Amino acid sequence: MSGLITPMALRVAVTLGLPDRLRDNPATARELAPELEVDPLALDLLLAHLTTLGVAERTASGYRTTDFGALLGAGAGNGLNNLLHHDSAAGRADLAFVDLVHSVRTGEPAYPVRYGQDFWTDLAGQRHLRDAFDQQMTDRMRNWVPQIVRNYDWSRFGTLVDVGGGHGSLLAAILTANPAMRGHLVELEDTAAGARAVLGLYGLGGRTEVTGGSFFDPLPTGGDAYLLFDVLHDWDDEQAHRILARCAEAGDRVLVVESLGESTEFDLVMLVHFGGRDRGLHDFERLASAHGLKLESVTQVTGGRSLLEFTR
């Protein structure tokens, strides 16, 4: 439980591209080292441990990625490569766990201690991190979207405003299943451009609008419901109040989809990365009440997510 060696070995293997590089073309550490610009002896030590783990295997031609190790490849379709790579949003953020003691002592994120600025500022300044984060969110949603669409009556709303809706995969699925609905997605401009493309691929351009902007700024008015999916847990109470205030001033119904504090591990991730946390039901009621919003219903929409419906 206390060992750091194997988790870091897997992350370095992904960062160096070893699972993909060695999938169909076995090579020795000495052959690979110049190509990857690494030390051959150190690389051999890493590959030996990856062999112990079953991620790689020795052949007459050198090391080769196993079928198990191929699950770490960029094209494996499970999102692991994006989560573990040192230069992706999630992989980079996880390295801040070396400063967990700072977060525990102060209640503040550890990310700025390691990188000199907060997570969101880092994403704003490095497009590849923003793209990796957007892909991470899309990967997370893949298995949840059908459940969310099925387990809640979205047809009650004429227009749904998805606040911080990423590339729009959830909004697209909701609108596809409910042809009478319209949608409006709000996201930072770089991500909003991707959302326009995704919604267009679904043939929803005529029923959707995408606004580039922050949920800390005034939101488009006229929506029947304002959806915050996995947004509030990224923020401390002060910032969560600001987001809810914007939703409440734009409309009379706010839909909050979150985990209700069911994962202790995820709580620490939110703390270290963002200074946020999962919250319990009463925490959300307390936050919402400050903006004239009262809890109307709670609906479990996935195995780990509940939809809290608040009305003015």
Rank of each mutant, 00 (worst) to 15 (best):
275 G>C: 05
54 G>P: 06
268 L>R: 12
235 W>A: 09
99 D>C: 13
258 E>F: 07
175 L>T: 01
302 T>M: 03
95 L>E: 13
136 Q>S: 14
88 S>C: 04
177 A>R: 02
184 H>N: 07
206 G>K: 09
229 F>G: 11
296 E>K: 14
54 G>R: 02
231 V>T: 12
75 G>D: 01
40 P>L: 00
256 V>G: 10
202 Y>N: 10
12 V>F: 05
176 T>K: 08
259 S>H: 09
31 E>P: 01
308 L>I: 04
230 D>M: 10
139 D>R: 05
297 S>K: 10
69 G>E: 00
62 G>A: 12
1 M>Y: 10
103 S>L: 12
165 G>Q: 02
200 G>Q: 04
169 S>I: 08
127 R>S: 14
117 Q>M: 14
78 N>C: 08
113 V>G: 10
212 G>M: 03
305 R>H: 13
158 G>K: 12
122 D>H: 15
65 T>C: 00
195 A>V: 00
140 R>L: 11
45 L>W: 08
93 A>G: 15
22 L>K: 00
214 S>I: 05
163 V>K: 06
5 I>L: 12
283 D>I: 05
68 F>H: 12
102 H>A: 07
58 R>M: 13
112 P>A: 01
304 G>S: 12
103 S>A: 15
59 T>Q: 06
271 L>F: 06
4 L>N: 09
84 L>H: 01
72 L>F: 02
231 V>G: 10
111 Y>W: 04
106 T>E: 09
187 E>D: 14
48 A>L: 09
48 A>M: 07
270 M>T: 08
53 L>H: 01
176 T>H: 11
290 A>H: 11
268 L>F: 11
70 A>F: 04
2 S>F: 11
232 L>V: 13
268 L>V: 13
146 P>G: 12
104 V>F: 15
309 E>D: 10
190 D>W: 11
304 G>A: 10
287 L>H: 05
90 A>V: 15
152 Y>I: 08
129 L>P: 09
156 R>K: 11
103 S>M: 12
146 P>E: 07
70 A>S: 15
251 G>L: 04
12 V>T: 13
257 V>A: 15
79 G>L: 04
280 G>K: 14
172 A>H: 06
230 D>T: 14
74 A>P: 01
246 R>Y: 02
79 G>I: 02
85 H>Y: 03
114 R>I: 10
180 A>P: 07
242 R>Q: 15
264 T>F: 13
150 R>D: 15
96 A>T: 04
205 G>T: 09
222 G>E: 11
188 L>I: 14
127 R>M: 10
57 E>M: 04
298 V>E: 13
122 D>M: 13
142 R>F: 04
59 T>P: 03
66 T>E: 01
26 P>E: 00
27 A>G: 07
251 G>V: 02
161 V>G: 09
53 L>F: 06
113 V>K: 09
174 I>T: 06
